[in-house]
Amino acid sequence: MTNTLQNVFATTKQEKRAAFIPYVMLGYPNEAASLAIAQAMADAGADIIELGAPFSDPLADGATIQKASQRALENGMTLRKYFQMAEQIARKTNIPLVMMGYYNPLLRMGLDEAMRSAANSGICGCITPDLPVEESLAVISAGKPYTIAPIFLAAPSSSDRRLKAIGAAAQEADSGFIYCVSLNGVTGARAALAEDLPQFMQRVHVAAPNIPLCVGFGISKPKHASLAARYADGVIVGSALMNAYDEVGATDTAAGVKSAEILARRMRAAAVTQ
């Protein structure tokens, strides 16, 4: 069985490039601007868009996404609004959408309602950064009736035994991809990619040979995207795009959106496999 996400990777593979997956936090810097940023990502050729849901205590995130979360929540962002906004994006863009959100807001809404709302909004996958594979059963089961693919994370510090368990769970749950964290750390822009990225990606590939692998955390520059694309089926870019927006967006929203779009185009163009 192939799902929406797997189709994306089949296409990008034919085009000899890695899928470009930008992260957009809904509600940051405000609702309208985040919708405009998502549209700009679509215009820049995003293959999948990862839509971030803000949380008050994002412990896997660095300063950029923390501040954005806080701002979005201060603006009155909620999970219900998040799903309404995702639906607007889905209607306009026809690009597969993946949810990135911490566990507690989903739990509070009720996992069934959260997954049903996600599916109704056009979301086809779900990343919960504070759920390791052994605690993921509830989300997997809740998402199944609505064909929401659970997406697991793998880290350089994950043992081979853990990677195998992650690969098996991803295979079993028909995950769209495995989210490979490029470094041991939190999200955020970095000057350079981790040197041991190729070895790490190879270890994940051995543990999960049939599942697309996407790299995220610290992918900040086109050259990082280009390097990561050698080892991965997709590259995920978050904080760097937010920073690009922030450089000019505080005073001029349209210029901020444009700035993020320009970086996105360069990232996408750089993420070729040959």
């Binding site: 504070d130 605690e135 880290a155 853990r162």
Partner: peptide, 19 residues
Amino acid sequence: AGRFGSFGGVFAPESLMFA
């Protein structure tokens, strides 16, 4: 599994699991 009845568990990022 680190559970006290239904409570407890390991709701941590994968990066911390080895530690």
